[in-house]
């Protein structure tokens, strides 16, 4: 039983590592779009990590947090697509 939960936590850790790897792209760019797509990946990985922790500790409340985080991640992407496209327009 212990093994299985540790495995889930390890996978969560792996996703955190991948998020850190993707942070390189946030740092390097070169365009804003590259940064945002990388931020999106970081966000997705965060959601997965939270969900995996919820699975490992059997804490369903963490899933609520993951759900909200996923929502914000989506909101970020579409908000960004608006902000860059419509300078001098609707925004």
């Amino acid at each position: 039983m212990v093994e299985f939960e540790t495995a889930l936590l390890a996978v969560a850790g792996a996703f955190v590592v991948f998020a850190v790897v993707a942070l390189y792209r946030v740092f390097a760019g070169p365009t804003t779009f590259d940064r945002i797509i990388a931020v999106n990946v970081v966000g997705t990985n965060t959601v997965i990590a939270i969900a995996l922790v919820a699975g490992a500790f059997d804490q369903s409340v963490f899933l609520d947090i993951a759900l909200v985080y996923a929502l914000l991640n989506f909101l970020l992407s579409i908000a960004f697509s608006k902000f860059t496209v419509e300078r001098g327009g609707v925004l």
């Binding site: 365009t31 779009f33 945002i36 797509i37 999106n40 997705t44 959601v47 969900a51 919820a54 699975g55 369903s60 899933l63 609520d64 993951a66 759900l67 996923a70 929502l71 991640n73 989506f74 992407s77 579409i78 960004f80 697509s81 608006k82 860059t84 496209v85």
Partner: peptide, 28 residues
């Protein structure tokens, strides 16, 4: 069920988010 909802949500929104960003890039 909550986890399944999260799964469906990601499944639906992730490609849309990628599309939104790619579209903004193309537009620019």
């Amino acid at each position: 069920i909550k986890a399944v909802f999260l799964l469906l949500f990601m499944f639906l929104t992730n490609p849309t988010a990628a599309h939104a960003i790619a579209r903004a890039a193309e537009d620019q």
